[in-house]
Design a protein around this nucleic acid. Structure first.
Length: 225
DNA sequence: TCATTAAATTGTT
DNA sequence: AACAATTTAATGA
């Protein structure tokens, strides 16, 4: 099946549009495949499109010339990012990297702005998303510094399962390897493995082969606090 | 459908 | 970081 036929599945806002708007979006959206580790957007680059994760898994990070990387966010299928740079007409503020083979959807800036002008539901959706992001960012400021690795892993997972930002069909299960979780939480794979089993003992989630299933999302959010 | 093999992921040191 | 064990995916009878 062609990717454009499944926009409905990976863009929660698509269903909010009327026929004309859907037609134009379907026509304007472009899909690009990235292999694991590939740089999707560079910090400093001009923002010309809204970025949607159609398949795979992506991380947002800000790297510095040293090995040090600042805090980052994972974005699973269904997540749309980069509207900040688009709205403010700025250069990209973060790097976007494919954690595994991924398909990225790009909605051109002109189309994005056209939707902003023509669709109230779309505006409402964006407002919702921005508000949710602020909350996430504030939470991150607290836990990022002085929290045990277990708690960092817990928070990273809680973010990935945010049902508002990433509507994964209400499914509390995500295909992600422990190595990938390690990249997001900035923990070694071994430490991630330990953390996951600690969280499993706490009945917060279930670890599966190449996937995790969340049992208690609120418990994850507040783990270690 | 089942058995065999390779590849990916996890568990342990 | 290296290695062993386990799970999944692919292949062919």
């Amino acid at each position: 099946m062609h990717p454009k036929d499944s926009l409905q599945d990976t863009a929660a806002w698509f269903g909010l549009l009327d026929q004309e708007q859907q037609t134009r979006v379907r026509h304007d959206v472009q899909f690009t495949h990235y292999t694991a580790g590939a740089m999707i957007e560079r910090k400093g680059g001009q923002a010309y499109a809204w970025i949607g994760v159609h398949a795979g898994l992506v991380k947002v990070s800000v790297g510095n010339p040293e090995g040090k990387m600042a805090s980052l966010t994972g974005v699973p299928v269904g997540g749309w990012i980069g509207e900040g740079s688009l709205l403010k007409h700025e250069a990209r503020k973060y790097d976007v990297v494919a954690l595994r083979d991924s398909v990225i959807a790009r909605l051109p800036e002109s189309t994005f702005n056209w939707l902003l002008d023509s669709s109230i539901p779309f505006n409402r959706y964006l407002l919702h998303q921005l508000n949710e992001r602020v909350g996430q960012f504030i939470g991150k400021a607290e836990y990022d510094r002085l929290l045990a690795p277990d708690a960092r892993v817990a928070r990273c997972l809680a973010e990935l399962f945010n049902p508002l930002l990433y509507p994964g069909k209400g499914e509390m299960r995500l295909d992600i390897t422990q190595e990938e979780i390690g990249f997001l939480a900035r923990t070694s794979r071994q430490r991630t493995n330990q953390a996951l089993r600690a969280l499993e003992d706490a009945q917060l989630l279930k670890v599966e082969y190449g996937a995790v299933q969340v049992l208690n999302l609120d418990g994850l959010k507040s783990y270690g606090q």
